[in-house]
Design a protein around this nucleic acid. Structure first.
Lengths: 165, 165
DNA sequence: TATTGTTATACTCTATAACTATA
DNA sequence: TATAGTTATAGAGTATAACAATA
């Protein structure tokens, strides 16, 4: 199978242990893929986010849930699930934990007896206010690697990717 | 079991059930955060990727592993882990599965008796070739929502986010 | 002593089925 | 009949500790 070489192939040929150990890894192909870069960027941002939110004991999903409740008083579990892409059974435990911490309350929905409206407690409002301020600082820090124009461009392009329209 | 519910007094205790049900959810705050957008974009791309790679029975991580082996013959498990951010114990099962499918082989490392060099089999080379072609088509499709200039810009900005430098 | 690959294991995250009470 | 919330549970993904062989 070695008779078709035109150039000198760096790929394995015959020899025993295939003599092809590399010290420097070539990642250029993966780095050309949008999905790879988007995932790496998301993980990097989330990592910083985790640290910054540790004082509030909030994971990204908790922050998202509380922030949505803050800006949409009375939102239902189902609406939260649809907005954040969470499955209903997996939201229950989160809401129970947040309720136990006295950050949110479930109240009867005004027009649908099956549903419960979610609301922040006073403590929850304060926590969200503080956490959102921290998030803003974090945002400024992470995005400081980009110019203001680049930041706006990045958000716009990301939205174009995940919002079919 | 009688789950006793401490009926916490509603915040706005006077009026009926807090009358604040919204039909339209305001997500503008979350959408202003880089992490939120990066994660949503990554998930959207990965979802399409999953479908496109189904014929090859490859998850994103499998594709990354095979592609790295293809472009770095003889790469070790440890190098794969460092590059992709996978923990060694979690890579073992993936490599076993790929080896069982006759896509890769473990060969003794030429200079380090502890390590094993990873190589593609002929079948593995064909699969990677096909999968990478499919990935390219997919890339073109997803990124078609962006102009060529925007695509380059997006990749560049994402890299600036996750590559500290 | 440090590192590679590995096993065992635990913990988190996500997904599916089914139940209740309301609509 | 369909939907909102919930329970129980299964599966995938990710984490730590520890061991044998080699450096």
């Amino acid at each position: 199978m070695a008779h078709l070489r035109t150039h000198r192939p760096p790929l394995n040929s015959r020899a025993a242990p295939a003599e092809a150990a590399t010290d420097v890894i070539d990642t250029s192909y993966l780095e050309s893929l949008l999905g790879y870069n988007a995932r790496r960027a998301a993980l990097a941002v989330i990592e910083v986010f985790l640290e910054a939110m540790a004082p509030y004991q909030l994971r990204p999903v908790d922050f998202s849930v509380l922030s949505l409740i803050a800006h949409n008083a009375g939102i239902t579990s189902r609406q939260l699930c649809a907005t954040l892409g969470i499955l209903p059974p997996n939201l229950v435990g989160m809401l129970n934990a947040l309720e136990k911490r006295n950050l949110i309350v479930r109240q009867p929905h005004p027009r649908d007896g099956r549903a419960m409206g979610l609301h922040l407690t006073t403590a929850g409002q304060k926590l969200v206010r503080d956490a959102e301020r921290t998030a803003a600082e974090l945002e400024a820090e992470v995005a400081s690697r980009l110019s203001p124009g680049e930041q706006k461009t990045l958000l716009r392009l990301l939205k174009k990717i995940y919002q079919p329209e």
